[in-house]
Design a protein around this nucleic acid. Structure first.
Lengths: 205, 205
DNA sequence: TCGTTGCGAAACTTTGCCGTATCGAAAACG
DNA sequence: CGTTTTCGATACGGCAAAGTTTCGCAACGA
C-alpha cells in the first residue's frame, strides 16, 4: 500500500483534531443535558454554541446525537466504591453517602434520569447505561445485603428485592423531597441516620 | 338588553360545542403525555390528530398548552382514600396499595413525572399539581405516622421526614425496578410484605 | 512550499409545529 | 326557512432547529 508498512500508527495527514474542542463539546453536552428534561431537547446547535465550536466539528466526530451522549456520559462514570467489608452498617453508610452525593449533583443525576425516562426512545443508550452503571451497583448492593444475611447481621427471612428498594428508594426519595432544604447543617450525620432507620427494619429482632 | 331578562341561562345561539370532541381531546392529551418524556414534546397538532379533531376545536377551548394539560390532569385526580384509622399497619397498607396501583398506571404516573421534572419550565402548573395532589397526600402520610408515634405503635424517636421517605421511596423504587416483572402472582401479598418490612424499622423495639 | 485535513462561521434546504384564517357542512335556534 | 355558531379539514406565513455544504484560515507532515 504505502511506502512504509505502518499498521499501528496510520499517521493521519493534515491538521490533527483539537483535543480542546472535543473537551469543550463534551462539557457543553453535559451542561445542556443536565439543564434539559429529555434528550430530545438537546440540540446540536446549542451544544456547538455553548462550546464555542462550529457544528461541523461536532458532526465530524459523532454521527448521531446518541453517540455524542454516550461519550459524554462516559466521562461521569465513577468507579464502584471499595467496601471495607467490616460490617453491613459501615458498608451501607459508604454506599449511601455516595448515592446521596451523586443524587445531589446535577450532572450525575442526569444519568439516572436518562436511564429511567428514555428507555422507550433510546433503548440502546439506556441499555448501555444499565450495563455499565446501574446493574453493577445493584449487584453490589445485593451482595452486600446477601452477605449480611449470611453473617447474621441481617434477618434470615429478608426479602432481598424489598430490602434493596428500601435502601435505594429511601435515599433517592429523601433527597428528592427533603432535598437540600435543611442545607448542610446536619448533613454529616444524615447518612448515618438514614442507615440506622433503614437497618432497624432489616436486622434480626 | 334582549327581550327576555335571562341572567341564569345566557342561551348561546348557534351549534353547541360537542362534548364528545372535548372528551376525545382530553383522552388524546392524556395518551400523548404518558407517551412522552416532557411536556415540550406534546404538540397540539398531535393531540388534534389523535383525537380526530381540527386544531380549531382545541384552540377555541384552551388558549395555551398548559391550560389543556391542567384540564386533562384534573380527570386523573383520585380522591384521598378514607383511612380506617384502626391501626397504622392497616392504614399503611391502604395507602401503599393505592400508591402501588397508581405508580403502575401509565396515566397516573405521568402526574408525578410532571411534578418532579417540569418544575423549572412550568412552575405554575407544577405548583397546582403540588397543591392539589402531592401535598395533601404527603400531609396525610405525615399525620398517619405522627399518630402512630402518639399511640405508641411507632418508635418515639422516629425521624418523620426519613420515615416518610422510607415509606414512599421504597414503594416507588420497588415498582420502578422490580416493576411488574413477577406479574400479579404474589402481588396480592406484595403490599403487605412491603409494609411489614418497612414497619419493622419503625416500631418500638 | 505544498498537500492534506481540521477549524469556526455562515448560508442553505428541509422538517415540524405554531397560531390564524378560510372553507363547506352540520346542528342548534327562532 | 334564515341566523348563528361549531364542526373537521386544509392552507398559510413564521419560526426554530436539523443536517449539509461552502468558505477562508490554521496547523500539521513531507
Amino acid at each position: 500500500m504505502t511506502t512504509t508498512d505502518e499498521t499501528r500508527a496510520p499517521r493521519p495527514a493534515g491538521r490533527p483534531r483539537s483535543a480542546k474542542a472535543e473537551k469543550a463539546i463534551i462539557e457543553a453536552t453535559l451542561d445542556l443535558i443536565s439543564e434539559s428534561v429529555s434528550l430530545s431537547e438537546l440540540s446540536i446547535e446549542a451544544v456547538a454554541a455553548r462550546a464555542g465550536v462550529g457544528k461541523t466539528t461536532i458532526y465530524r466526530r459523532w454521527s448521531s446525537k446518541e453517540d455524542l451522549v454516550v461519550d459524554a456520559l462516559a466521562v461521569l462514570k465513577s468507579p464502584l466504591p471499595p467496601l471495607a467489608g467490616r460490617s453491613v452498617r459501615e458498608d451501607l453508610i459508604t454506599c449511601l453517602e455516595i448515592m446521596r452525593r451523586e443524587a445531589s449533583d446535577t450532572r450525575s443525576r442526569c444519568v439516572m434520569n436518562i436511564a429511567m425516562n428514555e428507555a422507550e426512545r433510546h433503548p440502546r443508550l439506556v441499555e448501555r447505561i444499565l450495563r455499565a452503571t446501574v446493574r453493577p451497583r445493584q449487584e453490589a448492593m445485593r451482595a452486600l445485603l446477601q452477605r449480611g444475611v449470611e453473617t447474621g447481621e441481617l434477618r434470615a427471612d429478608l426479602d432481598l428485592p424489598i430490602a434493596m428498594a428500601m435502601v435505594v428508594g429511601t435515599v433517592m426519595w429523601y433527597v428528592k423531597t427533603a432535598g437540600s432544604g435543611e442545607a448542610g447543617a446536619d448533613s454529616e450525620t444524615l447518612t448515618e441516620r438514614l442507615v440506622d432507620h433503614i437497618l432497624a427494619g432489616l436486622v434480626p429482632r
